[in-house]
Nucleic acid binder design. Structure first.
Lengths: 186, 186
DNA sequence: TTGCGACTATGACGATTGGTCTATAAGAAG
DNA sequence: CTTCTTATAGACCAATCGTCATAGTCGCAA
């Protein structure tokens, strides 16, 4: 084993980036292989399930990155939903602008494309989203909102942000994201 | 012109449905041709720009359908944003459930996939979205919100709904949509 | 050292489908 | 019968994803 499956990691990271920028179906394995530097055979060695399994791995990695970011924001504002969402929004807006409005939500595009045809992907998507909502909800709970309602709030915040990311991409502007970030009420 | 370009219309309608359910890149022209019943040659006769031009036409048609729906809701609740959003959400939730969570926003998937690579599509997407926001904003204005702020509110409502549609698809539940519909504040 | 076997890793191949274009058929008008 | 527009089928090549037979590499026993 050449150093803990280096190619495996490279494949996932490249796939994550390309799926995020171009979408799942529009991105060919060829491009992923070329840009990752991994050989063709490795793909089906590490991912017997082919493109879809690679897609799930990419979603999971992307989910972890976002989760890490959310936890970082939570650490700064553990009990202040308004501040939390503002920073969350600013972070996403920053990523969006840096990439020339190419890197939106790393999972939205892929999920929209693959969920209709794949129960496994749906399951993976749910797990990822759940983890995000959990963090956001925690902030509401810490602010005194009842757990049950906090969860609903968490989903609402996430929905708004996801929608804003979509609009931002079409509009080529961070405006929709920053607007949403200002709209969380008590 | 044989009967007002019947095949042209069939192509657009079929494309709209398939793009909505499966995504843009995942849907082959072959399938569109087969399900629409239009002959193969017709596609490049009616859409010299190929798949992308057909995609734009599909987005525009879908945009019109949603616009028509929004105007219908506006007619029922011309100056009551809360009621407006509730009915808007119920309608989308109904469509979603009917289709087994396959028919989400008819433009979101296609836009996410194509916008990064196509300025024309971006332009089309913007026009469609603008038209929606205009209707939603009008309701806020009628309720006494200043025009400028009303527009921001309109975009926020749209963003929330789009995000909710995404979540609904992953969760296979109308819950996120209905939750959002309850969250519009004064 | 040498040989063997098991596990890791890989590039060449193939069947299929992708979107696109061109040469021609069908139909109306003169 | 010709001419122009409308409309169409089929050929086109590149790219798709997936499979397979084989090459490399390590530990271990003879």
């Amino acid at each position: 084993m050449a150093r803990a499956a280096k190619h495996r990691r490279q494949l996932i990271e490249t796939a994550m980036r390309l799926f995020r920028e171009q979408g799942y179906a529009s991105t060919g394995l060829q491009q992923i292989l070329a840009e990752s530097g991994a050989p063709k055979g490795s793909l089906y060695y590490y991912f017997p399930g082919g493109k879809e399994e690679l897609g799930r791995a990419a979603i999971e990695l992307a989910g972890d990155k976002i989760l890490e970011m959310l936890r970082g924001v939570e650490k700064r504002h553990p009990a202040d939903p308004i501040a939390f969402v503002r920073v969350y929004g600013k972070t996403m807006a920053g990523w969006m602008a840096e990439s020339g409005f190419q890197s939106g939500c790393p999972v939205a595009t892929t999920l929209l494309e693959t969920v209709p045809a794949s129960p496994e992907m749906t399951e993976t998507g749910n797990r990822v989203v759940d983890a995000w909502v959990e963090v956001i909800s925690r902030v509401f709970v810490a602010a005194g909102v009842r757990p049950r309602e906090a969860r609903t709030r968490g989903e609402q915040v996430l929905a708004s942000m996801e929608g804003a990311l979509l609009l931002a991409r079409v509009r080529r502007s961070t405006r929709p994201i920053l607007d949403v970030a200002k709209t969380i009420w008590s």
